[in-house]
């Protein structure tokens, strides 16, 4: 029976955790073998699956009747679906191995494999992964979040329109709350591959001009999915900034030189993805969990 094509991988996977499924996978193997040699399955596995499945649908008798009667055809359908998805997964895996992205070269689309190793995600900037140069990190003259006299500083390189930078935000804020001895310096690394990222950098600097850098910073992440020229102005209004002054600053790219400087600084530190965190000489790339940030902070905290 063709359904064994599906039953086998499912049972094999479950068999990693439970002996019962190991026995079932053995049955499925036998069944599969008989199926490919065009003999009927003789362990009763197919019958059990069919009946148990039908019984689950008993509440809707006509659906149950259909499934029961057309089980072989439905099985074929699911097997083809399984094979197709196996093919595409294989292709994705190959792309991931070859290009680091399961959707193939030059694609920015979401890749499921990344989810498997969340700590490894980042928004790619300039380069392939390589060493970072923490000694080039600068903090002077940047807005500081948290205790200005803190003993330890987290330096974050982020991008306003990078989803992974946004993902890291809650953990970072929680750290600042839990560790009064720690503060944060945020460097913006606008990535031209993300839309509105350079614009956001300008907007944040215009807000800084009016003393509301961090409020604006939070706003951008909060509404990351709706960034545009209009919303940048609207944010200013919502934060009760002088909108005229803000608009003028924003539309004339008043801080172009700062934006350029930030970009060059990021290059000199060797940033290849956002977010990147430096805590003394330790660095972490990708959206960090609270746990991992905390571990580094505890290690680096001066005693």
């Amino acid at each position: 029976m063709v359904l064994c094509f599906i039953a086998l991988p499912v049972f094999a996977l479950l068999g990693l955790f439970s002996v019962r499924y190991r026995e079932l996978s053995k049955e499925a193997i036998r069944c599969l073998f008989r199926t490919v040699t065009l003999k009927p399955c003789d362990t009763g596995l197919d019958q059990r699956i069919r009946s148990k499945f039908t019984a689950k649908l008993m509440f809707w008798p006509s659906l149950a009747r259909f499934v029961y009667a057309q089980f072989t055809i439905l099985s074929w359908f699911f097997v083809i679906l399984l094979l197709a998805s196996a093919f595409f997964s294989g292709q994705g895996l190959y792309n991931y191995a070859a290009y680091g992205n399961c959707n193939g070269q030059n694609s920015n689309a979401f890749c499921v494999f990344n989810v498997v190793r969340p700590e490894q995600q980042e928004c790619t900037t300039f380069d392939v992964k390589h060493e970072l140069y923490p000694f080039n990190v600068k903090t002077k003259g940047h807005p500081v979040r948290g205790n200005p006299l803190a003993k330890l500083t987290i330096v974050e390189y982020g991008c306003y329109s990078c989803p992974y930078t946004k993902e890291a935000e809650p953990a970072v804020r929680q750290i600042l709350k839990d560790f009064p001895e720690v503060n944060l310096v945020y460097h913006d690394v606008p990535l031209s591959i993300h839309s509105n990222s350079i614009e956001a950098a300008h907007a944040a600097l215009c807000a800084q001009e009016q003393g509301k850098y961090w409020e604006y910073h939070d706003k951008i992440f909060e509404r990351q999915d709706k960034l545009s020229n209009e919303t940048f102005i609207a944010f200013a209004g919502e934060l009760e900034l002088n909108v005229t002054q803000f608009s003028e600053c924003y539309s004339t790219n008043r801080y172009q030189n700062v934006v350029d400087q930030e970009y060059n600084d990021a290059l000199s530190v060797g940033i290849y993805g956002t977010p990147t965190f430096f805590i003394n000489n330790a660095n972490l790339v990708g959206p960090q969990k609270y746990k991992s940030l905390k571990a580094v902070i505890e290690k680096e905290m001066p005693r």
Partner: peptide, 13 residues
């Protein structure tokens, strides 16, 4: 209907 199917469906209930 096969008698085992009947028993299996009842078992599910």
């Amino acid at each position: 209907m096969n008698h085992h199917d009947v028993a299996l469906m009842l078992d599910s209930n």
